[in-house]
Computed example of a mutant assay.
Amino acid sequence: MFTLVAAVVFFASFLLAAATIIGMFALYRDKMVAALLFEPIPQERPVYRLRISRRRASAGERPGARTSPVHAMAA
């Protein structure tokens, strides 16, 4: 008797698992096909073109270039 109950429970659980798998395939078939056929959009690397322009100060225009008489005597 125990063997018969165990076989019925095992067979019922197998049928439940198979029905769950088949049901998932039926519900999500479109999503699985779309995921398998998906081709990612190619990403181009961004190109950065930087142009840095600044005026160069001449030696007479820089504030630190002036020498004071105190510093000239200390040297």
Rank of each mutant, 00 (worst) to 15 (best):
M1Q: 05
F2Q: 08
F2N: 02
T3Y: 14
T3R: 15
L4F: 13
A6M: 11
A6I: 14
A7R: 10
V8F: 14
V9R: 02
V9Y: 05
V9H: 01
V9M: 05
V9Q: 00
F11Q: 05
F11L: 15
F11D: 01
A12N: 06
S13W: 04
S13G: 04
S13R: 02
F14V: 00
A18C: 03
A19C: 07
A19G: 05
T20K: 09
T20Q: 08
I21M: 01
I22H: 13
G23M: 05
G23F: 12
G23H: 07
G23N: 05
M24C: 11
M24P: 00
F25S: 01
F25M: 03
A26Y: 09
A26H: 07
R29I: 07
R29M: 04
K31Q: 15
M32H: 05
M32V: 09
M32C: 02
M32L: 14
A34W: 03
A34S: 09
A35R: 11
L36S: 08
L36F: 14
L36G: 07
L37M: 12
F38M: 03
F38G: 00
E39S: 14
I41Q: 13
P42G: 02
P42N: 01
Q43I: 15
Q43F: 15
R45M: 12
R45I: 11
R45P: 05
P46L: 13
P46R: 10
Y48W: 10
Y48K: 07
Y48S: 03
Y48M: 05
Y48L: 14
Y48V: 15
R49L: 08
L50H: 07
R51E: 11
I52S: 07
S53R: 04
R54C: 06
R54Y: 09
R55E: 08
R55A: 13
R56L: 12
R56Q: 10
A57Q: 09
S58F: 03
A59R: 12
P63L: 04
P63Q: 02
P63I: 08
G64K: 04
G64I: 05
A65W: 00
A65K: 03
R66F: 04
T67W: 12
T67P: 00
S68E: 02
S68Y: 04
P69S: 03
P69T: 04
P69A: 10
H71D: 03
H71E: 11
A72K: 12
A72Y: 11
A72M: 08
M73V: 11
A74F: 15
A75W: 12
